[in-house]
């Protein structure tokens, strides 16, 4: 596999009238990588995806796919496939026709189209649905067909626009795993937009955390989680969210501490705390603790023997504490 950049986004800007939607985005990934664009709604991630797809034009900047500059190319010449949030299956065609449509538009011979439909249907286990119309399918089945439609023609780039947001929680987890498996098998370069940090962490090779039209941090899931570049990223990734507090001896600095790094000990050791609330999830329990530094969340494995109202002592390893500039929110190393 070539190690050339599979997708490069260079200084992309987009303005609508006075508002700047994207303020100079730079992202580059290699062939076969799974890129996540994640951020709260309105951060510009969907706009960026549409630009990669060729459905919207940037005000300035360049987009390269493989080694081609595609900024001015229409969608159909970019060799990409996209799975939409609503799936956008053609209601007037059955599943097989939906999957074959892109090949038909590209004048692929009938026998070859049928072979492709067969291959994709087997891969996604939807062989028994090929004659059905989209209206006769369940949410999960539609999702599969949408992926099949994208897979059928072996695109150079796969785009996903919040594909799991219309599914219920259980199905979402299942389909998330399927998307990951599929990517491991096909190794097609993928760009995936989501607002869900769990999807971002579980699926991505690279994650671009976005906010207000800017990339806050671009890195691997580990880098994002272990070394968040600023307070926004630190807060956005991880559940329960990171604790933040200030210490009198470090003015102007915000300390960030993940709940799993807050250690509970006997009362009198370390920081004084009192249990406010327990949230058992089964495999682990979250404790809300009242401390002189504010309310903090701790996360412990399994169940806890602590009761509401118990006094505890709190400690953490100094190297686990992240430090952020109080004013700018930037990470301090």
């Amino acid at each position: 596999m070539n190690k050339m950049g599979a997708l490069a986004i260079r200084q992309i800007r987009k303005t609508f009238g006075q508002t700047e939607i994207l303020k100079g985005i730079d992202i580059e990934i290699e062939a076969g990588e799974f890129l996540i664009l994640v951020g709260p709604s309105g951060c510009g991630k969907s706009t960026l995806l549409n630009m990669i797809a060729g459905l919207e034009q940037p005000t300035s900047g360049r987009i390269e796919i493989g080694d081609r500059d595609v900024t001015e190319l229409p969608s159909r010449d970019r060799d990409i496939a996209m799975v939409f949030q609503s799936y956008a299956l053609y209601p007037n065609m059955n599943v097989a026709q939906n999957i074959a449509f892109a090949l038909e538009m590209r004048k692929v011979a009938k026998a070859e189209r049928e072979a492709a439909v067969k291959r994709v249907a087997a891969m996604l286990q939807i062989e028994h649905l090929l004659d059905r119309r989209p209206a006769q399918l369940s949410g999960g089945q539609r999702q599969r067909v949408a992926m099949g439609r994208a897979l059928a023609r072996n695109p150079r780039l796969f785009l996903f626009d919040e594909p799991l947001s219309n599914l219920d929680a259980k199905l979402r987890v299942e389909m998330r795993a399927e998307i990951k498996l599929l990517h491991q098998r096909t190794r097609t370069t993928t760009v995936y937009v989501t607002h869900d940090q769990v999807e971002a962490m579980t699926l991505g090779d690279r994650i671009a955390v976005m906010k207000d039209g800017q990339v806050q941090q671009f890195g691997t899931p580990d880098e994002i989680y272990e070394r968040p570049a600023n307070r926004f990223v630190a807060e956005f990734v991880g559940s329960p969210a990171m604790n933040f507090f200030a210490r009198p001896e470090q003015p102007g600095v915000q300390i960030g501490l993940r709940p799993e790094h807050l250690e509970l000990g006997a009362p009198g050791e370390g920081l004084k705390g009192q249990v406010l609330m327990l949230e058992p999830t089964g495999p682990e329990t979250y404790l809300k603790l009242d401390t002189p530094l504010g309310v903090l969340t701790a996360r412990v494995a399994g169940r806890t023997l602590h009761q509401v109202g118990d006094a505890v002592g709190l400690r953490w390893a100094p190297e686990r504490a992240h430090q952020f500039d109080g004013a700018s929110g930037r990470r301090i190393d």
């Binding site: 797809a53 969608s75 990409i80 939409f84 949030q85 956008a88 053609y90 449509f101 892109a102 439609r149």
Partner: peptide, 13 residues
């Protein structure tokens, strides 16, 4: 839905 049209555009129509 506009996404239908966009999907068809990406499909090469």
């Amino acid at each position: 839905p506009d996404e239908l049209i966009r999907a068809a555009m990406l499909d090469g129509a």
